[in-house]
Design a protein around this nucleic acid. Structure first.
Lengths: 193, 193
DNA sequence: GACTAATTAGGACGCTTGTCCTAATTTTGC
DNA sequence: GCAAAATTAGGACAAGCGTCCTAATTAGTC
Protein backbone atom coordinates (compact mmCIF):
# COMPACT_ATOMS: atom_id res chain seq x y z
CA UNK A 1 0.00 0.00 0.00
CA UNK A 2 1.46 3.38 -0.99
CA UNK A 3 2.66 5.70 1.73
CA UNK A 4 0.16 8.48 1.01
CA UNK A 5 -3.00 6.39 1.09
CA UNK A 6 -4.04 8.24 4.23
CA UNK A 7 -3.83 11.48 2.30
CA UNK A 8 -6.08 10.05 -0.40
CA UNK A 9 -8.53 8.87 2.21
CA UNK A 10 -8.62 12.33 3.74
CA UNK A 11 -9.26 13.96 0.36
CA UNK A 12 -12.01 11.51 -0.54
CA UNK A 13 -13.74 11.98 2.79
CA UNK A 14 -13.36 15.76 2.69
CA UNK A 15 -14.76 15.76 -0.84
CA UNK A 16 -17.94 14.06 0.34
CA UNK A 17 -18.31 16.16 3.47
CA UNK A 18 -17.67 19.43 1.63
CA UNK A 19 -20.39 18.44 -0.81
CA UNK A 20 -22.92 17.33 1.76
CA UNK A 21 -22.31 19.96 4.41
CA UNK A 22 -20.49 22.77 2.68
CA UNK A 23 -16.84 23.79 2.90
CA UNK A 24 -17.08 26.31 5.74
CA UNK A 25 -19.42 24.24 7.88
CA UNK A 26 -17.26 21.11 7.64
CA UNK A 27 -14.61 21.17 10.35
CA UNK A 28 -11.41 19.21 10.78
CA UNK A 29 -13.06 17.41 13.66
CA UNK A 30 -15.82 16.14 11.34
CA UNK A 31 -13.32 14.90 8.77
CA UNK A 32 -11.08 13.36 11.42
CA UNK A 33 -14.01 11.48 12.92
CA UNK A 34 -15.14 10.25 9.50
CA UNK A 35 -11.64 9.11 8.51
CA UNK A 36 -10.82 7.78 11.97
CA UNK A 37 -7.54 9.59 12.56
CA UNK A 38 -6.27 12.24 14.92
CA UNK A 39 -6.94 15.93 14.29
CA UNK A 40 -3.33 17.07 14.55
CA UNK A 41 -2.38 14.50 11.94
CA UNK A 42 -3.86 16.59 9.14
CA UNK A 43 -1.07 19.09 9.22
CA UNK A 44 1.46 16.56 8.08
CA UNK A 45 -0.50 16.21 4.83
CA UNK A 46 -1.98 19.71 4.46
CA UNK A 47 -0.64 23.03 5.66
CA UNK A 48 -4.05 24.68 5.98
CA UNK A 49 -7.71 23.95 5.35
CA UNK A 50 -7.45 25.88 2.10
CA UNK A 51 -4.77 23.44 0.99
CA UNK A 52 -7.24 20.65 1.61
CA UNK A 53 -9.83 22.48 -0.48
CA UNK A 54 -7.25 22.75 -3.27
CA UNK A 55 -6.69 19.01 -3.10
CA UNK A 56 -10.45 18.35 -3.20
CA UNK A 57 -10.88 20.61 -6.23
CA UNK A 58 -7.92 18.94 -7.94
CA UNK A 59 -9.53 15.57 -7.30
CA UNK A 60 -12.82 16.76 -8.76
CA UNK A 61 -11.06 18.17 -11.83
CA UNK A 62 -9.29 14.87 -12.35
CA UNK A 63 -12.47 12.82 -11.95
CA UNK A 64 -14.42 15.12 -14.23
CA UNK A 65 -11.74 14.75 -16.87
CA UNK A 66 -11.87 10.98 -16.50
CA UNK A 67 -15.66 10.95 -16.78
CA UNK A 68 -15.65 13.10 -19.92
CA UNK A 69 -12.92 10.95 -21.46
CA UNK A 70 -15.00 7.88 -20.67
CA UNK A 71 -18.05 9.30 -22.43
CA UNK A 72 -15.86 10.32 -25.35
CA UNK A 73 -14.59 6.77 -25.72
CA UNK A 74 -18.02 5.17 -25.51
CA UNK A 75 -18.26 5.18 -29.29
CA UNK A 76 -21.71 6.75 -29.48
CA UNK A 77 -22.44 9.90 -31.43
CA UNK A 78 -22.31 13.41 -30.01
CA UNK A 79 -26.05 13.42 -29.35
CA UNK A 80 -25.76 10.34 -27.15
CA UNK A 81 -22.74 11.82 -25.40
CA UNK A 82 -24.67 14.98 -24.59
CA UNK A 83 -27.42 12.78 -23.20
CA UNK A 84 -24.85 11.13 -20.93
CA UNK A 85 -24.26 14.54 -19.43
CA UNK A 86 -27.96 15.31 -19.08
CA UNK A 87 -28.76 11.98 -17.48
CA UNK A 88 -26.37 12.71 -14.64
CA UNK A 89 -29.23 14.78 -13.26
CA UNK A 90 -31.50 11.74 -13.15
CA UNK A 91 -28.88 9.32 -11.90
CA UNK A 92 -27.82 11.63 -9.04
CA UNK A 93 -31.28 13.04 -8.33
CA UNK A 94 -31.39 11.87 -4.72
CA UNK A 95 -28.13 13.60 -3.82
CA UNK A 96 -29.00 16.67 -5.89
CA UNK A 97 -32.30 17.08 -4.06
CA UNK A 98 -30.48 16.84 -0.75
CA UNK A 99 -27.29 18.81 -1.46
CA UNK A 100 -27.56 20.43 -4.90
CA UNK A 101 -24.96 20.19 -7.66
CA UNK A 102 -21.45 19.67 -6.22
CA UNK A 103 -19.91 22.16 -8.63
CA UNK A 104 -22.58 24.85 -8.53
CA UNK A 105 -22.99 24.89 -4.76
CA UNK A 106 -19.24 25.02 -4.18
CA UNK A 107 -18.82 27.91 -6.61
CA UNK A 108 -21.65 29.85 -4.96
CA UNK A 109 -20.29 29.25 -1.47
CA UNK A 110 -16.76 30.27 -2.42
CA UNK A 111 -18.14 33.39 -4.12
CA UNK A 112 -19.81 34.50 -0.89
CA UNK A 113 -16.66 33.75 1.07
CA UNK A 114 -14.63 35.68 -1.52
CA UNK A 115 -12.32 32.69 -1.49
CA UNK A 116 -9.10 32.52 -3.50
CA UNK A 117 -10.04 29.08 -4.87
CA UNK A 118 -13.18 30.54 -6.45
CA UNK A 119 -11.82 30.50 -10.01
CA UNK A 120 -10.25 27.08 -9.64
CA UNK A 121 -13.62 25.64 -8.66
CA UNK A 122 -15.28 27.36 -11.62
CA UNK A 123 -12.78 25.68 -13.92
CA UNK A 124 -14.74 22.43 -13.46
CA UNK A 125 -17.61 24.20 -15.19
CA UNK A 126 -15.05 25.19 -17.81
CA UNK A 127 -14.28 21.52 -18.46
CA UNK A 128 -17.96 20.71 -19.02
CA UNK A 129 -18.41 23.82 -21.17
CA UNK A 130 -15.48 22.95 -23.42
CA UNK A 131 -16.42 19.30 -23.73
CA UNK A 132 -20.06 20.12 -24.52
CA UNK A 133 -18.90 22.74 -27.01
CA UNK A 134 -16.97 19.99 -28.77
CA UNK A 135 -20.06 17.80 -28.92
CA UNK A 136 -22.22 20.57 -30.36
CA UNK A 137 -19.53 21.31 -32.91
CA UNK A 138 -19.60 17.65 -33.87
CA UNK A 139 -23.33 18.11 -34.37
CA UNK A 140 -22.50 20.88 -36.82
CA UNK A 141 -23.49 23.81 -34.62
CA UNK A 142 -20.39 25.76 -35.67
CA UNK A 143 -20.19 29.18 -34.04
CA UNK A 144 -23.25 28.50 -31.92
CA UNK A 145 -21.65 25.47 -30.27
CA UNK A 146 -20.37 27.27 -27.18
CA UNK A 147 -23.62 29.17 -26.70
CA UNK A 148 -25.52 25.88 -26.85
CA UNK A 149 -23.11 24.33 -24.35
CA UNK A 150 -23.61 27.22 -21.95
CA UNK A 151 -27.37 27.00 -22.40
CA UNK A 152 -27.26 23.34 -21.43
CA UNK A 153 -25.16 24.15 -18.37
CA UNK A 154 -27.62 26.89 -17.42
CA UNK A 155 -30.57 24.55 -17.59
CA UNK A 156 -28.76 21.82 -15.68
CA UNK A 157 -27.77 24.18 -12.89
CA UNK A 158 -31.26 25.63 -12.78
CA UNK A 159 -32.76 22.17 -12.45
CA UNK A 160 -30.34 21.37 -9.64
CA UNK A 161 -31.15 24.53 -7.68
CA UNK A 162 -34.92 24.21 -8.05
CA UNK A 163 -34.84 20.49 -7.26
CA UNK A 164 -32.92 21.26 -4.08
CA UNK A 165 -35.29 24.05 -3.08
CA UNK A 166 -38.53 22.20 -3.77
CA UNK A 167 -37.12 18.73 -3.03
CA UNK A 168 -39.32 17.44 -5.79
CA UNK A 169 -38.38 14.20 -7.49
CA UNK A 170 -40.80 14.43 -10.41
CA UNK A 171 -39.49 17.90 -11.15
CA UNK A 172 -36.07 16.65 -12.30
CA UNK A 173 -37.58 14.08 -14.64
CA UNK A 174 -39.92 16.53 -16.36
CA UNK A 175 -37.20 19.13 -16.83
CA UNK A 176 -34.83 16.53 -18.21
CA UNK A 177 -37.56 15.48 -20.63
CA UNK A 178 -37.77 19.12 -21.72
CA UNK A 179 -34.03 19.20 -22.34
CA UNK A 180 -34.19 15.96 -24.30
CA UNK A 181 -36.92 17.42 -26.47
CA UNK A 182 -34.86 20.55 -26.99
CA UNK A 183 -31.97 18.38 -28.18
CA UNK A 184 -34.18 16.77 -30.83
CA UNK A 185 -35.07 20.21 -32.20
CA UNK A 186 -31.43 21.01 -32.92
CA UNK A 187 -30.44 20.74 -36.58
CA UNK A 188 -28.16 17.78 -37.10
CA UNK A 189 -26.01 19.04 -39.93
CA UNK A 190 -23.25 16.46 -39.74
CA UNK A 191 -24.40 13.59 -37.55
CA UNK A 192 -21.27 11.52 -38.11
CA UNK A 193 -17.72 12.79 -38.40
CA UNK B 1 -40.02 56.92 15.68
CA UNK B 2 -41.50 53.53 16.58
CA UNK B 3 -39.99 51.57 19.43
CA UNK B 4 -38.88 48.61 17.31
CA UNK B 5 -36.93 50.53 14.68
CA UNK B 6 -33.77 48.93 16.01
CA UNK B 7 -35.26 45.56 15.30
CA UNK B 8 -36.01 46.57 11.73
CA UNK B 9 -32.50 47.87 11.32
CA UNK B 10 -31.09 44.58 12.55
CA UNK B 11 -33.26 42.60 10.13
CA UNK B 12 -32.34 44.83 7.18
CA UNK B 13 -28.63 44.58 7.95
CA UNK B 14 -28.78 40.83 8.57
CA UNK B 15 -30.65 40.42 5.29
CA UNK B 16 -27.83 42.08 3.37
CA UNK B 17 -25.07 40.27 5.24
CA UNK B 18 -26.74 36.87 4.93
CA UNK B 19 -26.99 37.48 1.21
CA UNK B 20 -23.45 38.72 0.69
CA UNK B 21 -21.62 36.41 3.08
CA UNK B 22 -23.99 33.52 3.71
CA UNK B 23 -26.05 32.68 6.79
CA UNK B 24 -23.57 30.47 8.61
CA UNK B 25 -20.53 32.64 7.92
CA UNK B 26 -22.23 35.82 9.14
CA UNK B 27 -21.79 36.17 12.89
CA UNK B 28 -23.55 38.30 15.46
CA UNK B 29 -20.37 40.32 15.78
CA UNK B 30 -20.51 41.21 12.06
CA UNK B 31 -24.12 42.31 12.27
CA UNK B 32 -23.57 44.22 15.51
CA UNK B 33 -20.63 46.08 13.98
CA UNK B 34 -22.62 46.91 10.85
CA UNK B 35 -25.65 48.12 12.82
CA UNK B 36 -23.54 49.83 15.47
CA UNK B 37 -25.03 48.25 18.57
CA UNK B 38 -23.88 45.89 21.28
CA UNK B 39 -23.79 42.14 20.78
CA UNK B 40 -25.79 41.27 23.85
CA UNK B 41 -28.53 43.58 22.71
CA UNK B 42 -29.68 41.15 20.05
CA UNK B 43 -31.25 38.82 22.52
CA UNK B 44 -33.85 41.33 23.53
CA UNK B 45 -35.15 41.25 19.94
CA UNK B 46 -34.36 37.67 18.92
CA UNK B 47 -34.09 34.57 21.05
CA UNK B 48 -31.64 32.79 18.75
CA UNK B 49 -29.86 33.23 15.45
CA UNK B 50 -32.46 31.02 13.85
CA UNK B 51 -35.12 33.48 15.00
CA UNK B 52 -33.22 36.18 13.15
CA UNK B 53 -33.16 34.02 10.04
CA UNK B 54 -36.91 33.60 10.35
CA UNK B 55 -37.31 37.37 10.50
CA UNK B 56 -35.07 37.82 7.46
CA UNK B 57 -37.05 35.24 5.48
CA UNK B 58 -40.32 36.88 6.55
CA UNK B 59 -38.98 40.22 5.33
CA UNK B 60 -38.00 38.71 2.00
CA UNK B 61 -41.40 37.08 1.62
CA UNK B 62 -43.08 40.41 2.34
CA UNK B 63 -40.89 42.34 -0.10
CA UNK B 64 -41.34 39.70 -2.79
CA UNK B 65 -45.09 39.95 -2.36
CA UNK B 66 -44.90 43.73 -2.63
CA UNK B 67 -42.76 43.54 -5.75
CA UNK B 68 -45.09 41.09 -7.46
CA UNK B 69 -48.11 43.21 -6.52
CA UNK B 70 -46.35 46.24 -7.97
CA UNK B 71 -45.75 44.49 -11.26
CA UNK B 72 -49.34 43.29 -11.25
CA UNK B 73 -50.61 46.87 -10.86
CA UNK B 74 -48.38 48.27 -13.57
CA UNK B 75 -51.16 47.88 -16.10
CA UNK B 76 -49.10 46.14 -18.77
CA UNK B 77 -50.02 42.78 -20.20
CA UNK B 78 -48.81 39.44 -18.83
CA UNK B 79 -45.97 39.31 -21.36
CA UNK B 80 -44.57 42.61 -20.09
CA UNK B 81 -45.01 41.47 -16.51
CA UNK B 82 -43.04 38.30 -17.20
CA UNK B 83 -40.32 40.51 -18.70
CA UNK B 84 -40.24 42.50 -15.46
CA UNK B 85 -39.27 39.29 -13.74
CA UNK B 86 -36.66 38.36 -16.32
CA UNK B 87 -35.08 41.80 -16.30
CA UNK B 88 -34.30 41.50 -12.60
CA UNK B 89 -31.35 39.42 -13.77
CA UNK B 90 -29.99 42.34 -15.77
CA UNK B 91 -30.77 45.01 -13.19
CA UNK B 92 -29.09 43.05 -10.40
CA UNK B 93 -26.31 41.54 -12.49
CA UNK B 94 -23.48 43.08 -10.46
CA UNK B 95 -24.73 41.60 -7.19
CA UNK B 96 -25.67 38.30 -8.85
CA UNK B 97 -22.16 37.91 -10.23
CA UNK B 98 -20.73 38.58 -6.79
CA UNK B 99 -23.17 36.70 -4.55
CA UNK B 100 -25.60 34.75 -6.73
CA UNK B 101 -29.39 34.83 -6.42
CA UNK B 102 -30.49 35.65 -2.86
CA UNK B 103 -33.21 33.00 -2.90
CA UNK B 104 -31.32 30.23 -4.64
CA UNK B 105 -28.13 30.54 -2.62
CA UNK B 106 -30.01 30.65 0.67
CA UNK B 107 -32.04 27.56 -0.22
CA UNK B 108 -28.88 25.67 -1.21
CA UNK B 109 -27.05 26.67 1.95
CA UNK B 110 -29.95 25.73 4.22
CA UNK B 111 -30.26 22.41 2.39
CA UNK B 112 -26.65 21.54 3.20
CA UNK B 113 -27.12 22.65 6.80
CA UNK B 114 -30.31 20.56 6.97
CA UNK B 115 -31.88 23.64 8.53
CA UNK B 116 -35.47 23.77 9.76
CA UNK B 117 -36.10 27.02 7.82
CA UNK B 118 -35.32 25.24 4.54
CA UNK B 119 -38.93 24.99 3.42
CA UNK B 120 -39.79 28.51 4.52
CA UNK B 121 -36.99 29.87 2.33
CA UNK B 122 -38.19 27.77 -0.60
CA UNK B 123 -41.62 29.33 -0.24
CA UNK B 124 -40.19 32.51 -1.83
CA UNK B 125 -39.67 30.43 -4.95
CA UNK B 126 -43.26 29.32 -4.49
CA UNK B 127 -44.41 32.94 -4.65
CA UNK B 128 -42.60 33.49 -7.95
CA UNK B 129 -43.85 30.17 -9.30
CA UNK B 130 -47.48 30.94 -8.50
CA UNK B 131 -47.30 34.51 -9.80
CA UNK B 132 -45.60 33.43 -13.02
CA UNK B 133 -48.15 30.64 -13.39
CA UNK B 134 -50.85 33.30 -13.26
CA UNK B 135 -49.14 35.30 -15.99
CA UNK B 136 -48.78 32.31 -18.28
CA UNK B 137 -52.41 31.44 -17.67
CA UNK B 138 -53.30 34.98 -18.69
CA UNK B 139 -51.34 34.29 -21.86
CA UNK B 140 -53.64 31.35 -22.44
CA UNK B 141 -51.16 28.63 -21.60
CA UNK B 142 -53.81 26.71 -19.66
CA UNK B 143 -52.53 23.49 -18.14
CA UNK B 144 -48.99 24.22 -19.28
CA UNK B 145 -48.84 27.48 -17.29
CA UNK B 146 -47.15 26.04 -14.20
CA UNK B 147 -44.65 24.05 -16.26
CA UNK B 148 -43.72 27.22 -18.15
CA UNK B 149 -43.36 29.12 -14.88
CA UNK B 150 -41.03 26.47 -13.50
CA UNK B 151 -39.07 26.45 -16.73
CA UNK B 152 -38.53 30.20 -16.41
CA UNK B 153 -37.43 29.79 -12.79
CA UNK B 154 -35.02 27.05 -13.85
CA UNK B 155 -33.42 29.21 -16.51
CA UNK B 156 -33.19 32.20 -14.19
CA UNK B 157 -31.52 30.18 -11.46
CA UNK B 158 -29.19 28.58 -13.96
CA UNK B 159 -28.17 32.00 -15.27
CA UNK B 160 -27.53 33.20 -11.72
CA UNK B 161 -25.33 30.21 -10.83
CA UNK B 162 -23.29 30.31 -14.03
CA UNK B 163 -22.89 34.09 -13.85
CA UNK B 164 -21.59 33.72 -10.30
CA UNK B 165 -19.20 30.94 -11.26
CA UNK B 166 -17.80 32.56 -14.41
CA UNK B 167 -18.27 36.15 -13.20
CA UNK B 168 -19.11 37.05 -16.76
CA UNK B 169 -21.19 40.15 -17.40
CA UNK B 170 -21.93 39.50 -21.07
CA UNK B 171 -23.15 36.05 -20.15
CA UNK B 172 -26.24 37.32 -18.35
CA UNK B 173 -27.25 39.59 -21.22
CA UNK B 174 -27.01 36.86 -23.85
CA UNK B 175 -28.95 34.35 -21.76
CA UNK B 176 -31.65 36.93 -21.03
CA UNK B 177 -31.88 37.59 -24.75
CA UNK B 178 -32.40 33.86 -25.22
CA UNK B 179 -35.22 33.89 -22.68
CA UNK B 180 -36.82 36.91 -24.36
CA UNK B 181 -36.74 35.09 -27.67
CA UNK B 182 -38.28 32.03 -26.06
CA UNK B 183 -41.11 34.21 -24.77
CA UNK B 184 -41.89 35.45 -28.29
CA UNK B 185 -42.23 31.85 -29.48
CA UNK B 186 -45.03 31.16 -27.02
CA UNK B 187 -48.50 31.16 -28.53
CA UNK B 188 -50.44 34.19 -27.37
CA UNK B 189 -53.94 32.84 -27.31
CA UNK B 190 -55.56 35.61 -25.29
CA UNK B 191 -53.22 38.61 -25.17
CA UNK B 192 -55.69 40.91 -23.42
CA UNK B 193 -58.20 40.28 -20.64
C1' DG C 1 -41.23 64.26 39.26
C1' DA C 2 -41.48 59.22 40.74
C1' DC C 3 -42.38 54.47 39.46
C1' DT C 4 -42.55 50.96 36.06
C1' DA C 5 -41.36 48.91 31.80
C1' DA C 6 -38.60 48.67 27.76
C1' DT C 7 -34.24 48.94 25.81
C1' DT C 8 -29.24 48.90 25.67
C1' DA C 9 -24.31 47.97 26.95
C1' DG C 10 -20.84 45.01 28.09
C1' DG C 11 -18.88 41.25 29.72
C1' DA C 12 -18.87 36.06 31.23
C1' DC C 13 -19.85 31.32 29.88
C1' DG C 14 -18.79 26.98 27.60
C1' DC C 15 -17.81 25.29 23.25
C1' DT C 16 -15.72 24.85 18.70
C1' DT C 17 -12.69 26.48 15.31
C1' DG C 18 -8.06 26.30 12.62
C1' DT C 19 -3.41 26.00 13.75
C1' DC C 20 0.74 24.50 15.92
C1' DC C 21 3.94 21.69 18.86
C1' DT C 22 6.01 17.73 20.84
C1' DA C 23 6.40 13.01 21.84
C1' DA C 24 5.46 8.42 20.39
C1' DT C 25 5.11 5.17 16.80
C1' DT C 26 5.78 3.13 12.38
C1' DT C 27 8.16 2.62 8.14
C1' DT C 28 12.30 2.74 5.27
C1' DG C 29 17.18 2.14 3.76
C1' DC C 30 21.50 0.30 4.72
C1' DG D 1 19.31 -4.89 13.60
C1' DC D 2 19.92 0.09 13.62
C1' DA D 3 19.77 4.76 12.48
C1' DA D 4 17.09 8.04 9.89
C1' DA D 5 12.90 9.48 8.08
C1' DA D 6 8.09 9.59 7.69
C1' DT D 7 3.84 9.29 9.89
C1' DT D 8 0.63 9.53 13.71
C1' DA D 9 -1.48 10.79 18.27
C1' DG D 10 -2.92 13.97 21.44
C1' DG D 11 -3.07 18.00 23.51
C1' DA D 12 -2.15 23.27 23.91
C1' DC D 13 -3.09 27.75 21.90
C1' DA D 14 -5.60 32.04 20.87
C1' DA D 15 -9.54 33.51 18.68
C1' DG D 16 -14.26 33.42 17.49
C1' DC D 17 -18.79 31.50 18.00
C1' DG D 18 -23.89 31.62 19.93
C1' DT D 19 -25.90 32.31 24.20
C1' DC D 20 -26.90 34.20 28.62
C1' DC D 21 -26.78 37.43 32.65
C1' DT D 22 -26.71 41.71 35.08
C1' DA D 23 -26.33 46.51 35.54
C1' DA D 24 -27.17 50.91 33.48
C1' DT D 25 -29.82 53.81 30.72
C1' DT D 26 -33.88 55.43 28.39
C1' DA D 27 -38.88 55.87 27.58
C1' DG D 28 -43.62 55.92 29.06
C1' DT D 29 -47.46 56.49 32.53
C1' DC D 30 -49.87 58.26 36.44
Amino acid sequence: MPASSTRNLIVETADDLFYEGGFEATSFAHIAAAVGISRGNFYHHFKTKDDMLDAVIARRVKRTHAMLDGWQADGDGPRERILSFVHMLVANRAKIMAFGCPVGTLCCELAKLDHVAQDRAAEIFGLFRDWLTGQFQALGAGDRAEALALHLLVRSQGVAVMATAFRDDSFIRSEVAGIEHWLTTLPDISPSR
